[in-house]
């Protein structure tokens, strides 16, 4: 660990006079409606927005959209798929997934981002080995901008 000590000592000797840490505002005054912004940004970065099917059959809607898909791996209750993520033990086993179905914990309007962690994926490689990703998004889960995404939730 002498390396560590040497680097830290060198930095302490080198550090310029301390500068203050600025406060970061949320920049959320007059934000346009989140859903509108989300749809615009999504189009900009190449994603496709699809309204939920009127009859509520998400499974059928996904099959209709990806008629040639062999493997549909689902990590959500609403869609059964052809493979359940609960049955996948190893990240490599997802190499042949055509469509992955996930539910993000939240989304960000500004950048059309969706948040997916190991809690949502269960097996992380699902999001990256699959050829297509279908995300079921609750409209109430869209925050306005990235500052909201990275601020710890304020309890009231």
């Amino acid at each position: 660990m002498s390396n560590r000590q040497a680097i830290l000592a060198k930095l302490r000797a080198a550090q310029p006079a301390p500068r203050p840490l600025p406060m970061v505002p949320l920049f959320d005054h007059n934000l346009p409606p989140a859903l509108m912004t989300f749809k615009q940004s999504l189009a900009l970065i190449g994603g496709t927005w699809v309204d939920a099917p009127a009859d509520g059959d998400i499974e059928a809607a996904i099959r209709a959209r990806f008629p040639t898909a062999q493997v549909i791996c689902s990590a959500v209750d609403e869609v059964r798929g052809s493979r359940r993520i609960e049955d996948v033990a190893d990240p490599h086993d997802l190499f042949d997934v055509d469509v992955a179905v996930v539910r993000p914990a939240f989304a960000v309007a500004e950048t059309a981002s969706i948040w997916l962690s190991e809690a949502e994926y269960r097996v992380n490689s699902l999001g990256y080995l699959a050829q297509h990703l279908v995300a079921l998004l609750d409209l109430d889960d869209i925050v306005g901008n990235l500052h909201h995404a990275y601020h710890p939730p304020v309890s009231d």
């Binding site: 970061v24 900009l44 950048t111 059309a112 990235l146 990275y150 601020h151 710890p152």
Partner: peptide, 27 residues
């Protein structure tokens, strides 16, 4: 070692600007 930032909330500032500055994409 210069990649450090203090808090998670600071990511908002940098992530908003990184790709916009690089390629003009929002993220």
């Amino acid at each position: 070692i210069e990649k450090l930032i203090p808090k998670l909330e600071h990511l908002g500032v940098f992530v908003r600007m990184l790709s916009r500055s690089a390629l003009g994409s929002p993220i």
